[in-house]
Structures are given as C-alpha cells and as structure tokens.
Design a protein around this nucleic acid. Structure first.
Length: 116
DNA sequence: AGAATGACGCTGA
DNA sequence: TTCAGCGCCATTC
C-alpha cells in the first residue's frame, strides 16, 4: 500500500507528465528537471515503474535521452504497449525502440527561440 | 548496515 | 553508430 501523503516525488512526476502535449515527447531527465530534482532521472523511472496500468496519464510520452525505449523484460511487455501508444499518436517507433526524439521534443513551457 | 539493482545521462573509445 | 564505463540516488534484498 502506498503511504499517505500524496505530496511525494511520484505525484510531482505524474503531474508533470500530464502536462506533456499530445504527439510530443519528454525525457526522464527533463521531467526530473522540471520538478526541481535535477539529476534524479532514475527516480522518475521508478515513479513510472510504480505507476499502475492502465493509467490516464500519458506515461508513454516519456523516453530516455537516447531517443529509445527501454526494452527490458522487467517491464513485462509494457515497453511494447508504449510503442503501440506512441504509434497511435503519430510518432514512428523503430522495432529497436528508436524514435525521432529531436523532432518531437517537448520544450516544456520555455523556448530558447533560436531559429533562423 | 552494506551490497546489489535499475523504464537514466553523459563522455570517451 | 554502437559499446563500455562512471556518476547519479531511491529502492530492494
């Protein structure tokens, strides 16, 4: 059972994930940074691992900075479900779990704005 | 308490 | 581009 107090790390992670626009992607490190926990990318991963599925959250929009899905058997196939959900949003995912992260990167709510 | 694990990130070969 | 190593830190044994 979860210990009371929903003001936990996990809750902040979920809240931030819920803000990711449809069709865009965010990395674990990016989520950690947005909640003020820079360097805690792994904790974000655990937060998602503890997330019960199915979930209303767009957890599938969170990928690693390498632009690939973590295809580990520890997830019991949830990685393939993530791939399926991403394809449904128009994001092409390679069979190796690679995807065009650079083209779907969520800039958060701040954009450096440096385009020609 | 100490060691191992992991849905990560970055650098270097 | 792919692979290995190191740093990171909560969770688990």
């Amino acid at each position: 059972m979860v210990p009371m107090k929903e003001s936990s790390f996990d809750q902040r992670v979920y809240q931030q994930i819920a803000r990711i626009p449809c069709g865009q992607l965010a990395t674990y490190g990016q989520i950690a940074e947005l909640i003020g926990e820079w360097g805690c990318a792994r904790q974000v991963g655990w937060a998602l691992r503890r997330l019960p599925l199915p979930s209303p959250l767009p957890w599938h929009r969170v990928v690693n900075a390498q632009g690939r899905l973590a295809m580990t058997l520890s997830r019991q196939g949830s990685d393939w479900m993530q791939r399926d959900l991403l394809l449904a949003e128009g994001i092409p995912v390679d069979l190796q779990g690679r995807l065009p992260l650079n083209q779907h990167r969520w800039q958060g709510e701040t954009q450096p704005e440096q385009r020609p």
